[in-house]
């Protein structure tokens, strides 16, 4: 399967139109989705996932709104990172993973057999827990994704734009040839964000992007997330409840019950979920009674 980024988007767009009626029908069903998200970018329906024989996700359904920050919270082992990695099929890289259900991006199921995960990952970028720049120059770090995806425009301009959007340009513009590894932890993470947005994705997934950073670097990344939300759809996994409350528009609370299967407990607007949770488990978690 080889498709250009454009063609998958065309296809995704077409499918979205075809699928709209059925989507509305499903939105009214009894899946644990607390309120309906208008015009979602990602729509996850009844997603189950197994690592070998061990089930890690059970019956997760939720829709991610466009150009908003959505936070996934919950105690360790509740499956929030696993859920995040389903959105760009990074779980495919782990042996013996089995996925059931659907993850639709712009209406097209990315787990359909006709979809190449390589194409999905171009449209859905990712920033990892530990900053992981390539051991190459800052410029090459940002340019790599564009280059392999056949970018034909002005590379210098693209690199500058991506670094500006990641609020890193002013700090590195004079030595773009310096190794990405020579930067501080916070700068490295912003470089990773620049690298992710340089391929012009629709969605940027962030897996605890601040857990390895100090408070000041964390704040810069949080500010950056708010800015990026004007252009991109952002989904963030975080252990830090305050962070979820500060940066996200919507929050999903996940929990693994005694069977260790991660499920979605509550999903809604962040203010509502933090001030007036509907589920008592959510309330117990956000008030610090466990987790």
């Amino acid at each position: 399967m080889t498709m250009t980024g454009q063609s998958i988007r065309d296809m995704l767009g077409r499918r979205m139109i075809e699928l709209r009626p059925s989507v509305e029908v499903r939105a009214g069903s009894a899946l644990p989705e607390n309120d309906v998200v208008e015009d979602p970018v990602i729509r996850i329906s009844d997603l189950n996932l197994w690592y070998g024989k061990k089930q890690a996700l059970g019956g997760v359904s939720l829709s991610i709104p466009r150009k908003k920050v959505t936070a996934l919270i919950g105690p360790s082992g509740c499956g929030k990172s696993t859920l995040l990695r389903c959105m760009n099929r990074m779980n495919d890289l782990i042996p013996n993973v089995r996925v059931q259900g659907s993850v639709e991006i712009e209406g097209a199921n990315i787990y359909a057999s006709t979809i190449d995960p390589v194409e999905v990952r171009r449209v859905v970028g990712m920033v990892f827990q530990k900053p992981n720049p390539f051991p190459k120059s800052i410029y090459e770090n940002v340019a790599f994704g564009a280059r392999i995806n056949g970018y034909k425009g002005d590379m210098d301009e693209l690199v500058e734009q991506a670094l500006r959007q990641a609020a890193l340009w002013d700090e590195v513009k004079d030595d773009l040839k310096k190794s990405g590894l020579a930067l501080s932890g916070g700068q490295q993470q912003r470089l990773c964000i620049a690298r992710a947005i340089a391929v012009n994705p629709d969605v940027v997934l962030m897996d605890e992007p601040c857990s390895a950073l100090d408070p000041i670097a964390t704040q810069r990344i949080e500010d950056l997330m708010r800015e990026l939300a004007e252009r991109y759809t952002i989904v963030i996994v975080t252990h830090n409840l305050q962070q979820a409350a500060r940066v996200s528009d919507r929050t999903a609370f996940m929990l693994a019950a005694d069977d260790l299967v991660g499920r979605l407990v509550e999903y809604g607007a962040t203010d509502q979920l933090f001030t007036n949770p509907k589920d008592e488990r959510t309330e117990a978690y956000i008030t610090g009674r466990f987790g």
């Binding site: 980024g5 390589v118 194409e119 171009r122 990892f128 992981n132 992710a196």
Partner: peptide
């Protein structure tokens, strides 16, 4: 493996 993840997440084969 973080290097592999980083590259694959950018849509590299």
């Amino acid at each position: 493996s973080s290097i592999r993840d980083a590259s694959l997440a950018l849509g590299a084969t």
